[in-house]
Structure formats: C-alpha cells, structure tokens
Amino acid sequence: MRARLLRFGPDALGKAGVVGSGRLYAAVAAGGFRRYATYRAATLAGVFTNTVFGVILAYTYIALWDERPHLGGYDQSQALTYVWLGQALLTTMCVMGTGFEEELIERIRTGDIAIDLYRPADLQLWWLAQDLGRALFQLLGRGLIPFVLGAWLFDLSLPASPLTWLAFLVAVALGVLVSYSFRFLVALAAFWLMDGAGITQMAWLAGVFCSGMVLPLNVFPGVLGEVVRALPWAALIQAPADVLMGEADLLGTFAFQAGWAVALLGAGRLLQVVATRRVVVQGG
C-alpha cells in the first residue's frame, strides 16, 4: 500500500527526478493545450455559441433583476457580470463534461488503459497536466472573446485593481483543480461500472445545477442554498465570480476551493490504487 502510494519511484525523490518529472508533465500540459488548439473550427463554433447564450441569458437576467432588484445580493450589473463569467468559464471548468474524462472512460472500457499503466508515469498527474493545458487553452480560446464581447455589449461591474484580477485567476486555477479532481473520480468509476455513460450524465446534471450555471448559487433559498454553496461545484464559477466582483472573503474562498481540491485529489489517489488492481479483467 505504502509502496503504491509512492508510485513516483525512487528517482523521483532526488532533485534530478523532480526536474525530470516536471519537464515531462510540462510537456504533457503543452500537448493538452495544443490538442484543443488543433480544432479551430470547433473553437470558433464554441465562441459563437457561448456569445449567443450569453446574450439570451443576459436579457433573461435583466428581466429577472428588474422584477427582483438585489436578488441574491447582486445588483443588475453584477448579475450580468455573473452571466458572462459563466459563459467564459463554462468550458474551462468543464461544467458540462466533455473533458479528458470521456477519453479516460473510453480507455478503461476498451482496456487501452493497460498501455497507460505500462509507462513510467503517474495516471493522475498525467491527466491533470493534460487537463490544465486544456483549461488554459479554453480560457483563452473560448472564454476571452465572449467575455470581452459581453463587456462591450452590457454594463458589467469589473474591478479596476490588477490585484483583484490576479486573485480572480488564482480562484480560476483552484476551480480547475477541483473540476479536474471530481472528473477524475467520475472517470475511475468506469473500472467498476464497465460503462461510463450513466455516471457522466449524472455528473453533467449535477454540474449544471450545482455550479450555478443556471442561476447564481447566492439566489438559492434556505437550506438548499446552504448545501449547494458548500458542495465542490461552488468552487467552479460562484467562487471566481465572487472574487472578481469583490463579494468574497479572499482567503476563505481560496481555502474552500483548496480544501475541496485536496480532498478530491486524495480520494482520486486512493481510488486509483484500488482501480489499477482491477485493470486486468477488461480486454485481454
């Protein structure tokens, strides 16, 4: 058990080993970035879709906030900022899935996962590196343009201080980490379920509802609100949005996000140890 948790092997303990691993996972992350950059037409189509949805949601929110000003503690401009942040972070956070997890589930289903295990690389770190590369591309390629367009079309409340923007980027990075570690758990479930379709759909549903894609989590009433704001999905969009709009206690928000990231990554590591022992049964 102990030996398996220290999977990186003896050479990773040395300084050269850490540098070597760093270079490998940096290369994997760069690969993840370029994989998504390859599909330019898909990116353009995505930018268009996010913009259109942003406009539709923005007018819906305007109607709603006209009726109920200061709903959830946001004024109308903040509500619109929330809309466009949601559109910008939708793919970065993989709220609706379609990240690495579908590929990993497919590899587990077909048994291709065996090949990944033959290599001197750690499964969780490998996919994490790749997913960070993907997230960075989608933040720049799919998030930036709709957000800029949104800011141009509507009156958004954006901070002037570069420090706030920096804090926002930290919150986004932590959000990506939470998103990744949750999806890694979902993907590994395929070792037991043999088919990942059901669980990815559940994850998709939970993601859309609990991340605040439909409505800000601040708006959710009573106990339901308390619960969704404590769940890991709150780290994806609600947390970065509140950091950007100065509605959040910075350290508390970071601690909340980091706490979920550590817990889910730890669970993923344990599940990986158990799952790699099962690898066998599938695909001879």
Binding site: F8, G31, R34, A114, I115, Y118
Partner: peptide, 29 residues
C-alpha cells in the same frame, strides 16, 4: 515504474501515440 524504463510494449490493436497531435509530439513526450 522502475521496470517500465527497461521494457517496451507494442499492442497491435492499441496505440500509445497521441491521437490528435503529429507523430513527432508523441516521440518528444
């Protein structure tokens, strides 16, 4: 992991190569 550095594995029906990227990228990896 220690052994993995000393062995090579090829499966006719599976691939270790990076599907979306040029062949050379997999080799750099």
């Amino acid at each position: 992991t220690r052994l993995a550095r000393r062995i090579g594995v090829v499966f006719g029906q599976r691939t270790t190569l990076w599907w979306d990227l040029p062949l050379i990228d997999s080799y750099k990896l």
